[in-house]
């Protein structure tokens, strides 16, 4: 017999409450992309190896692919769609455009969410430390220099909430 109990959960995503019924084996990433149609959060590996699915849960950057949605019942989630303040881009978003910190753009949402989480953690001081603490986000196009430059500019400008 295949168990197929669904669970009623509430996710607060980008300040909106969503009440959904889900099966326990559905990842947070798939809920965001397939149920809520928030496809800004990307699936690059589905196994915690690339960082493209990075979102902020209760302010902390985590990998949504290795998180079961059912485990985050009641959590506040910020995805790339919720990073800007309305029409005003987040400083990190602006800096990414200015520094050409992406090419294909697929790793970009994860890089940006990760950068915001990293700045909030406040542990990286030097460029080398920023590089180390951003290393959980792969970029195959090789936009690494632009990404780190963008983050360093915002970090040094101190305008990152």
């Amino acid at each position: 017999m295949e168990p197929k109990e669904t669970h009623a959960i509430t996710l607060n995503v980008n300040d909106t409450n969503y009440q959904i019924q889900i099966l326990p084996w559905v990842s947070l990433l798939d809920v965001l992309r397939e149920e809520l149609h928030l496809t800004g959060t990307k699936k690059g590996c589905d196994h915690g190896q690339c960082g493209a699915c990075t979102v902020l849960v209760d302010g902390k950057r985590i990998l949504s692919c290795l998180t079961l949605a059912v485990m985050k019942d009641g959590s506040a989630i910020t995805t790339i769609e919720g990073v800007a303040d309305g029409e005003n881009l987040h400083p990190i978003q602006k800096a990414f455009i200015e520094h050409d910190a992406f090419q294909c753009g697929y790793c970009t949402p994860g890089q940006i969410c990760s950068a915001i989480g990293m700045l909030k953690e406040g542990k990286a001081q030097t460029r080398e430390e920023v590089q180390e603490l951003m290393s959980g986000n792969l970029c195959r196009c090789g936009a690494n220099r632009g990404i780190i430059n963008a983050i360093m500019e915002v970090k040094e400008g101190g305008c990152h909430e």
Partner: peptide, 9 residues
């Protein structure tokens, strides 16, 4: 070990 995101989880 791992990455910042994974260490957070």
């Amino acid at each position: 070990g791992a990455s910042a995101q994974i260490r957070n989880m």
